[in-house]
Design a protein around this nucleic acid. Structure first.
Lengths: 111, 111
DNA sequence: TTCGTAGTTCGACGGTTTTAGTAATACGAT
DNA sequence: ATCGTATTACTAAAACCGTCGAACTACGAA
């Protein structure tokens, strides 16, 4: 079962995410090609530590917010973990850098 | 009128495109977040010289093909110029590199 | 146990994107 | 002039995406 994405939440509250080798370029680019998701990614990068969804102020409803975080997670851009009632999200910066070197930095730097 | 995108074709057959400063990150990412357009961009990068639309074999109809080239051009990723009956397309590699350093190389390198 | 907080799921709506077909245009060659 | 090639424009259908509200789950605190 090596390399297969978990379909259900693991015991430690980690939500399902693609393995590094499974991360697809088109999926990552699609995930990043949205102003709100880009903003989330930038906040996470700036924070440098896991952030709760609610910690990033966004001009959309909660359900839309959930949607955007899921797109990012399923693309392999972020990781999400249940901690109590919160979902702590963090950038998969190193893993992404391993799969697509230079991509995330250039996006984060980009105006 | 400096820095304003031309709305109509210029005399030398150059099709309307955004100025470097007008190129938007989200637009570029959206443009690249499609398998067919990514393929076009890769072929153009590999060729290193302007290519006619018809020179890149694609599994879609001609009109769809036109559409994808236009998306790339309007995002500022490629340049298109009429040469006789053909539209020669080329990557705006240097300009893109100036606006978003490292972005295109990382996308081209990515699996 | 009851309440509040954080977030999800579901169904729907509206707008955009992708797609193809058909007709039209521009040009080079005959 | 006419023909073939390359490509666009227009139109219309299908698929996709971002958005919301309402109902729901899960957890911690009082």
């Amino acid at each position: 079962m090596l390399g297969v994405t978990e379909l259900t939440e693991t015991e430690d509250g980690l939500l399902p995410e693609p393995a590094v080798s499974e991360i697809e370029l088109v999926a990552v680019l699609s995930a990043l090609a949205d102003p709100i998701r880009l903003r989330i990614v930038r906040e996470l990068a700036a924070a440098g530590e896991p952030l709760a969804c609610a910690a990033v102020p966004l001009p959309v409803s909660k359900s839309t917010c959930t949607h955007h975080y899921r797109v990012l997670r399923e693309a392999g851009v972020i990781r999400q973990q249940r901690v109590g009632t919160a979902r702590m999200s963090s950038l998969r910066e190193a893993e992404l850098g391993r799969r697509f070197p230079g991509l995330l930095p250039s996006v984060l730097a980009g105006g």
